[in-house]
Nucleic acid binder design. Sequence first.
DNA 1: CTGAAAGCGCTTACAG
DNA 2: CTGAAAGCGCTTACAG
Lengths: 345, 345
Amino acid sequence: MKGIRQLAKHLDISIGTVSRALNGKADVNAETRQRVLAAAVELGYVANQSGRSLRQGTTNVIGLMMESSKETNENGDNFFLGLTSGLQSVLSRHKLDLIMLPCPSEEDPTEYLQRMVARGIVDGMIISATQRIDHRLDLLSRTKIPFVTLGRSQSGGEYSWVDLDFDGVANSSVDRLIAKGHRRIAVAAPSNDVNLGYIFLDGYRNALKRHGIAYDPSLVFRVKSSEQGGYQAAHEMLLLDDRPTAIILIYELMAIGLYRRLTEAGVIPGRDLAVIGFREEPRAKFLQPTLTCFRMSVRDLGVELAETLLATMPAYASFYPKGACNTIWPLELVPGESDGFERKP
Amino acid sequence: MKGIRQLAKHLDISIGTVSRALNGKADVNAETRQRVLAAAVELGYVANQSGRSLRQGTTNVIGLMMESSKETNENGDNFFLGLTSGLQSVLSRHKLDLIMLPCPSEEDPTEYLQRMVARGIVDGMIISATQRIDHRLDLLSRTKIPFVTLGRSQSGGEYSWVDLDFDGVANSSVDRLIAKGHRRIAVAAPSNDVNLGYIFLDGYRNALKRHGIAYDPSLVFRVKSSEQGGYQAAHEMLLLDDRPTAIILIYELMAIGLYRRLTEAGVIPGRDLAVIGFREEPRAKFLQPTLTCFRMSVRDLGVELAETLLATMPAYASFYPKGACNTIWPLELVPGESDGFERKP
DNA sequence: CTGAAAGCGCTTACAG
DNA sequence: CTGAAAGCGCTTACAG
């Protein structure tokens, strides 16, 4: 005999009372509750999750799906570890636990998610790195499991999401560069189908149009979201006959590789080429000249994501009355020296 | 009605047969099995995990505990993301899933682990960043849940572990520096109670003794395992009257901060000070002069960890006959320019 | 080869 | 305030 039965026997009361005492139900004698609580600590009893879940239909666990692609791994993206801190600060208020579900790169993400959801180990899901077409969202909508995404998508119908303000970054970058006299402004965008690339490029094209500058596809470098991708973008740019005078990067680590390739070619950022990076990143802090980039709090983003998710879960919605919602997460420009020069006409 | 009951009704057979067919039991008519499998796919049926776990007493899930300290987050340690790839490649052979359990920094790690284990959501645990005294290991030993650690500890009694060869790194670093004429060799070691610091320092002291050099405590800088820690170590070193001529770092990102502080002071690595870094790291690749460091495959380490864990689990031990074991994981020296000069006597 | 039944550990109406 | 009992969804001896 083990579990709650053993504890009940040890206390010589019924398992029902033990359960009620442990779960903080009101209709338990104060003294009984104390005895139960004390015995639970003494014997190290914690309710078996499978038993609870089966009975209650909930697990009190929120899942964060991560695609651990080779690319992500090698570049050491600290984004997820930062997010968890903010997520947990909210979830812990409600005694919810966070688990990270790393999808193997060989496995189809939708099938992996399907399996995880069907097994019933989570009450809600957080999905990141949304693709433009992302069947995971269709799956979650169909299954009716509460979820929130970090990033928009064309899939999944109506749902709650939080996304970075890529449009804002594109606009303020272009405006800033044009104010300094630039007309040929390049972009290094992700080569995969992640949705943020599309949003950013839309913003970029609109911003150019606003300034009456024609869109030139040869100035859009589609590269990996990595340091290597930045190197590649610089490499391709240097091969152009009519080089751009400025470049905007859409991934934080690109700047490192870009600087390296530029340095090899004797092109100095901030003097020969204006560079605006994406998210401010500790690893890019050492760059010389300092990088103009955008600041945001990853932890606060985690808070926002968690609250948005809970708002869609019936059991917690009363705490977060905003309900289902879509949030554009702002980024703040941090001026550096990398785009500090005026372009002479 | 839902779950297996619904599926059985749809097929007009008993739930027992459905279960046996789905679980690949031998005593099922081939045609029946086909029908069941087809229907499961069609209706998107996957067995509820809580139901299975409760009945079987296993969850087919392996947990990887991570302490998401602020320090780790901000430094973007890609180590864990790299590990998961290797871990999963082994676990997936046995249809085991990996989940990452991020312990909030506010919470006591042992209590967090206790809760996760008692809930019964994992069949086995992987513990990293072992402390010299680490109550998590005592807990796991007591609970008799299969586990493996990345890193040794004085706690927990007999158990399986894999650990990097810190002693080897210390020895070959010291030997190498001494061969180049250095006598005053400093070390930047972690300031927290993580066990690897102790092991490394033991190796360092023994290596010095082997060469007849007295141990000088003022040459051991205890700093954070981060870029900032490297900066701090360099800073403290520069304040010394009798400066060392060489320094060994025990964390990969320290090199970045160290270089920065040295550069600020006009001290050139590889000319004025010999530097040996720890693990080879993409983010430190850009350093000039190139860093002498040690190479290892994080993915293969994950493979080793997973196989070591499975060897201790009765259900899988037959596949990994090595049984419980302790492995010292080798690192290979990668010569760079940072310690390339001969020290003049 | 299949079905009927027990039971994994819990929580929660229900009765007292 | 407490106990007895049902039942969450599954797997697995057991009987046929």
